[in-house]
């Protein structure tokens, strides 16, 4: 096939094709490139590619071209890691809006003199957009899967995942992780007195009071089951966790939700059990749950509406504050 036929074929490709000589100077590019860069090849032929696209200096793309020319190594530049490498635009109007095409770029060495390096560019804009949309939808679905449908806080699945991830992180970074088990006092009596509908409303209010009482973004109250909630705190030792627990306890008390059948107070209150550790390799996450549970039972035994800690130095429970 002669050169003219080759060039005609190249111009029909729905892909950008750029050809460089062995010094990295531009030999030609196809009609796709002219269309999307707004530059005719004859205006820039013979110039180093980084002079044509000045922003390429010190870029990974230039690095890849040098690798192709010097070592004959091939490279790929993906839109995920190199957003919009070259100033290419899908439509002329996008240039004014500075909305560049998302590009997937292949750089390969060639050995058909005078061509030494071939750059191929694919338009990934639609793919990247679809990917983003799918990801947003999937995040939304995941969020639904991990939310407790009644109270809107995390559900048991969310708690299990939070605990295992954060426990692993605490172990690898050798920092504290604390677990708070929170239980509404005499909740059965509340349901018996007011009915399940009012009971659900009370749970919703308690859950939001707890969630709103958290400062750190990413900390998430989860409904462990029934009227029990749980919270993991990464980087919190016993003292820090106790402070959070006490704040949460006071918040619920501050709701002033009438609870005439409670053995503790005239209002809805919670008891909280706390355990905090720097996890060793041998310690399973479940141990933290049993210790916090133990502390919670002890808070109940001592009259409810209080926080108790599991003390690791003597492996027993004691009052927090």
């Amino acid at each position: 096939m002669d050169r003219a036929a080759n060039a005609q074929l190249m111009d029909q490709l729905q892909t950008g094709v750029v050809l460089l000589d062995d010094r990295g100077c531009l030999l030609s590019w196809n009609a796709w490139m002219t269309r999307h860069s707004g530059i005719a090849p004859e205006d820039v032929a013979g110039r180093p590619i980084e002079d044509v696209f000045v922003e390429m200096k010190h870029s990974r793309l230039l690095n890849c071209i040098q690798q192709a020319l010097r070592f004959r190594l091939s490279s790929v530049l993906t839109p995920g890691l190199n957003p919009s490498v070259l100033p290419l635009y899908q439509k002329p109007g996008d240039r004014e809006l500075d909305q560049r095409m998302q590009q997937l770029v292949y750089v390969t060495p060639t050995c058909s003199d005078p061509y030494a390096c071939l750059i191929q560019i694919q338009d990934m804009t639609a793919t990247v957009r679809r990917e983003r949309r799918l990801r947003a939808q999937s995040s939304q679905l995941i969020a639904t899967t991990y939310r407790d449908s009644l109270t809107g806080v995390g559900n048991r699945r969310r708690f299990d995942q939070d605990l295992s991830e954060r426990f692993r992180e605490a172990r690898s970074r050798q920092i504290h992780i604390a677990l708070l088990m929170i239980d509404v006092d005499d909740f059965k009596a509340f349901n018996d007195r007011f009915g399940h509908q009012k009971g659900d409303e009370a749970l919703i209010m308690v859950a939001s009071a707890l969630q709103e009482g958290l400062r750190q973004e990413g900390d998430c109250i989860s409904r462990y089951g029934g009227e029990e909630f749980a919270l993991t705190l990464l980087g919190a030792d016993q003292e820090a966790a106790s402070t959070v627990a006490e704040r949460l306890r006071l918040r619920v008390e501050g709701l002033r939700l009438l609870h005439p059948t409670s053995r503790t107070a005239r209002h809805v209150t919670v008891s909280i059990g706390i355990s905090a550790v720097v996890p060793s390799m041998e310690l399973p996450p479940q141990t933290l749950v049993s210790q916090a549970d133990l502390a919670l039972y002890s808070a109940k035994d001592r009259g409810r509406n209080r926080c108790m800690c599991f003390d690791h130095t003597v492996t027993e429970v004691r009052a927090c504050v």
Binding site: S74, L77, T78, P79, G80, L81, E131
Partner: peptide, 18 residues
């Protein structure tokens, strides 16, 4: 989300390996 490698991530992994 720590689920699995989608095509998008496979491409990026390709580049890192590259």
């Amino acid at each position: 989300p720590p689920e699995e490698l989608s095509e998008f991530e496979q491409e990026a992994m390709c580049e890192i390996g590259n």
